[in-house]
């Protein structure tokens, strides 16, 4: 069948292209330019070639930050995705309580990142915070400012509190789209609760769950504000994730060249993972269409 194509429609994309050029492409080009030069300010630059990339690739500091970041993102995904699904499965499907649950679940998502950080920074304090004080009165030695494990637990619990709702809401949307006939068929077959989840709900949620995993991976991989407000990257460097380290390097130390090389490698990792997710999602969509 011949398909009529009107390429003039591409002009409609022009405003977005211009916007992206100014907000992303030009800054990215500038970062690439900075990554091969050295500067001491005053807009004077000196050619450095690939030295910053070589330095960064041999820098323990960057690999350690990348390691911490990868562990953090993995823990976040392992906790938030199953927990979000579990919450979604137990949310009422219709009526007043369905709307009530949706509003309650959406609340953490509406709070600005730095406010979330401040809430948890105070919440965890042993002297005035509800969590810190309660744990201390129970005899638990908890102090996120001096103990690395406590700092990690605090940052992870904070992220779980902030973002599990997103996974839950997406999973809930996936569940709502399943026609009642599937459940009726399962009841006729006397399928167990697990079988209904495994063979009906999970496959039907696949698309939205992939989006949830992609969003949570990207957000957690770029996390900055919340851990910065709570721990400032400490104690020591134990919660210094990639973006915190990058900001320290670029703005704290004014090492623009190494920071630019660092940013490009950081960008490439995110681009690679996003592409993998995008490819998996589009291929799943195609399979669904052809099914």
């Amino acid at each position: 069948m011949d398909k009529t194509q009107n390429n003039r429609a591409w002009f409609l994309v022009l405003p977005v292209l211009i916007l992206v050029a100014f907000s992303a492409v030009i800054p990215l080009m500038t970062v690439v330019n900075y990554s091969v030069q050295d500067t001491f300010g005053n807009n004077q630059f000196f050619w450095a070639g690939l030295d910053w990339f070589r330095d960064m690739l041999h820098s323990d500091r960057m690999w350690n930050a990348l390691g911490r970041q990868a562990i953090f993102s993995a823990i976040i995904l392992v906790i938030e995705v199953p927990l979000g699904i579990l919450v979604a499965l137990h949310m009422p499907r219709r009526g007043f309580w369905a709307s009530f649950c949706l509003v309650v679940m959406a609340l953490p998502l509406l709070i600005p990142f730095n406010v979330v950080g401040t809430i948890w920074q105070i919440f965890g304090r042993v002297d005035i915070g509800l969590l810190g004080h309660t744990l201390a009165s129970l005899g638990i030695d908890y102090n996120y400012t001096s103990d690395p494990i406590d700092a990690w637990v605090t940052v992870i619990v904070m992220d779980v509190w902030h973002w599990t709702s997103l996974v839950a809401l997406l999973a809930y949307a996936g569940l709502q789209s399943i026609p009642e006939a599937y459940y009726q068929a399962a009841r006729i077959d006397q399928a167990s609760r697990w079988a209904v989840f495994r063979y009906i709900e999970l496959p039907k949620m696949q698309g939205v769950l992939l989006i949830a995993i992609l969003l949570r991976f990207m957000d957690s991989f770029m996390i900055y504000t919340e851990p910065f407000v709570v721990t400032g990257g400490g104690p020591g460097n134990t919660t210094t994730f990639l973006s915190i380290d990058l900001v320290k390097m670029a703005i704290g130390q004014f090492d623009l060249g190494p920071a630019a090389a660092f940013s490009i490698m950081y960008f490439l990792v995110i681009l690679l993972v996003s592409w993998v997710f995008y490819t998996v999602m589009t291929n799943l969509d195609r399979k669904d269409v052809t099914r």
């Binding site: 390429n7 080009m29 500038t30 690439v32 091969v36 030069q37 500067t39 807009n43 630059f45």
Partner: peptide
């Protein structure tokens, strides 16, 4: 453009990428 700190090697790098995009767009259309 001075603030973008252009150099010849990075300029050539981006020109190659831009040319590739143009060539592939034309190929896709033609």
């Amino acid at each position: 453009m001075a603030w973008m700190a252009w150099t010849w090697p990075t300029g050539i790098f981006f020109m190659v990428i831009a040319s590739l995009l143009v060539v592939f767009t034309v190929l896709a259309a033609r």
